[in-house]
Amino acid sequence: MREKLLKLIEKNSRVDVAALAEKLGTDETTIVNEMADMEREGIICGYHTMINWDKVGGDSVTALIEVRVTPQKERGFDRLAKQIYSFPDINSVYLISGGYDFLVIMEGKTLREAAHFVNEQLAVMDGVISTATHFILKKYKDHGTIMDVGTRSERKPVSL
């Protein structure tokens, strides 16, 4: 039930409790309690909104930054990760396998601001060996959501 509930709200966190209860064949109280439990346990970590910022206008940018680091004795990668993710503009930090160590995703108000962060804050951090920054040019699909769906349908209005 937990897993089913999570799958449902992962797709749409605004489904109301009554609808969730109906879908899962249980009552609303159970749903409310289960969600509160999972919030306490840190399974549900937040409720966000998918926004296509391109449509809002402005110059905000998303940067994907590959970071190579030297892991530290006894603390491995965790301490460095914390130093990076504690910056408020950082969206995501992942430790990954392959050619580099951290994948850092940041939202900047402008290209200049993002570049400034990489050069002045990230690249100079103790333990950081190198960085490579990629700016996102267009988001087609994010978190399973296609950002710009054509709505034109060629379906005939009536068929038997």
Binding site: R155, K156, P157, V158, S159, L160
Partner: peptide, 26 residues
């Protein structure tokens, strides 16, 4: 022929109608 042809024609011509009339998946 289907007796409700006339009705279908009205629907097809009405531009901002919401149709719940189809027999195929969306």
């Amino acid at each position: 022929p289907s007796g409700i042809r006339k009705f279908f024609d009205i629907v097809t011509e009405m531009k901002d109608a919401i149709s719940l009339g189809v027999g195929e998946p969306d």
